[in-house]
């Protein structure tokens, strides 16, 4: 009998609402005061796999990832990351994750070299370990020759690579990645997706959000489809698709949930 797989991410009934301000109500032409961003979301992601959250814009993917990264707190439910609760032990959760999103920026004034050391210190990485890791990662992503160039002067691709490297200074077991290839040129996008597969091979748990079907098909072992904050399908990619293409299956589910594709 095979050993049961280890769920490193276990979301249980996660819910999150946001109050809409008067300005937001005007923009969206709505009278509702509260917007449900995530509604009773439960799923699991295991060690050594890439889990994809697939959904249209505004479905609640980013909110879910921010809840997992402890940047925001759930109104209800909880999520355990490596056994630590995002509600009870947010600091412990932060030490086990690497979170990467276009929302998180690096200060333009500093160099990749300085930032790597700075974030290593914040993550409590031993300086000798940090130095060895920096050597490997900078070489792996071609950052070496830009190590002393200020972030503000780097190309978009090099900035993204630096952000990725800095997100994993502490060699986290869980990597949370919001729209990993958004805004990247094809070369950098390939470098990033290759690295995610490499991390999976190293036994890490990766959860990413995207609205790109091909990315899910290429990278993800399991997928959760979110529409209007609700998880409408969750499981292994082949199981969710049930013989259809992912795109066809997604729109089938979308029509079931939202009526029609407007």
């Amino acid at each position: 009998m095979s050993e049961p797989r280890k769920a490193l991410i276990r979301a249980q009934g996660l819910s999150k609402t946001f109050k809409l301000g008067a300005k937001q109500q005007r923009i969206e032409r709505t009278r509702e005061r509260v917007r449900v961003a995530v509604d009773d979301l439960s799923f699991e992601a295991y060690a050594g796999e890439i889990y994809g959250l697939l959904g249209p814009n505004g479905a609640g993917k980013t909110t879910t990832l921010r809840l997992l990264a402890t940047l925001i707190r759930p109104d209800a439910g909880d999520a355990l990351l490596a056994g630590k609760s995002v509600v009870q032990e947010p600091e412990a959760v932060r030490a086990t994750i690497g979170f990467l999103t276009s929302e998180l920026k690096l200060e333009d004034f500093f160099t990749p070299n300085y930032l790597f050391d700075f974030f290593s210190t914040l993550q409590g990485v031993d300086p000798s370990v940090a130095a060895a890791r920096k050597d490997v990662l900078f070489k792996r992503f071609g950052i070496n020759e830009f190590a002393e160039v200020k972030v503000g002067e780097l190309s978009t691709g090099m900035k993204q690579k630096t952000s990725l490297v800095i997100a994993v200074v502490h060699d986290p077991d869980i990597i949370i990645f919001d729209e990993p290839t958004n805004g990247l040129d094809v070369i950098t996008a390939k470098v990033v997706t290759d690295y995610l597969q490499e991390l999976r091979g190293a036994g890490k748990t990766i959860i990413l959000s995207t609205h790109i079907f091909s990315l899910v098909e290429k990278l993800c072992d399991r997928v959760g489809i979110i529409i209007d904050g609700r998880m409408v399908a969750d499981g292994r990619l082949d199981g969710v698709c049930a013989g259809s293409s992912l795109e066809d299956r997604f729109f089938e589910l979308y029509v079931q949930e939202s009526g029609e594709v407007a």
């Binding site: 402890t70 940047l71 920026k105 409590g124």
Partner: peptide, 9 residues
């Protein structure tokens, strides 16, 4: 850039 700090321990 402050969010990058807030996601560390």
């Amino acid at each position: 850039t402050i969010a990058t700090l807030l996601v560390t321990p």
